[in-house]
Amino acid sequence: MRESIYQGVAGIGDPVGGEALVAHDNFSARYDLDRIKGTFSRPGHKLYGQSYVGKILILNIAKGGVATAWMLREMVEREMGPKALVLNAANPIMAQGAAFANLPLIDRFEVDITSVIKTGERVAVDPESATVRRL
């Protein structure tokens, strides 16, 4: 697989690498997740039933309410969170939650990031340069 670097606009958190879990679907921790089991629990979500724990979660846009801002830290401290969030478009709640949890987040890419990275690929996420690199 060729190495590619995808440029976003802004990032929060520290660099991290890992396995991607990807879907062109949206994201809210309250609406979409069973945070006890660590799986997507919303019927109809493209990742329904899949575990997000320890994954670089790559999704389309932030949706839903404000609870994610607290929930990301709670998930991270229980070691039941994703390793990073990569979104086409975050909203303030994702940014606030990432800042509070120190969970890496990048958004606003030149391409649809969910269409260029595939589930199972290994990627490096560098919030400082706002880049995602396929390894």
Binding site: A10, V66, A67, W70, R73, E74, E77, R78, A99, L105
Partner: peptide, 29 residues
């Protein structure tokens, strides 16, 4: 951190805060 992420130039003074913090969302952390 949040302001830098969204390109805020400075801060605005706010006059009221409405705070969401139910225990399910807060968790032990």
């Amino acid at each position: 951190r949040v302001g830098t992420f969204f390109g805020a130039q400075d801060c605005v003074e706010v006059s009221q805060v409405h705070l969401m913090a139910d225990p399910e969302s807060l968790g032990e952390a």
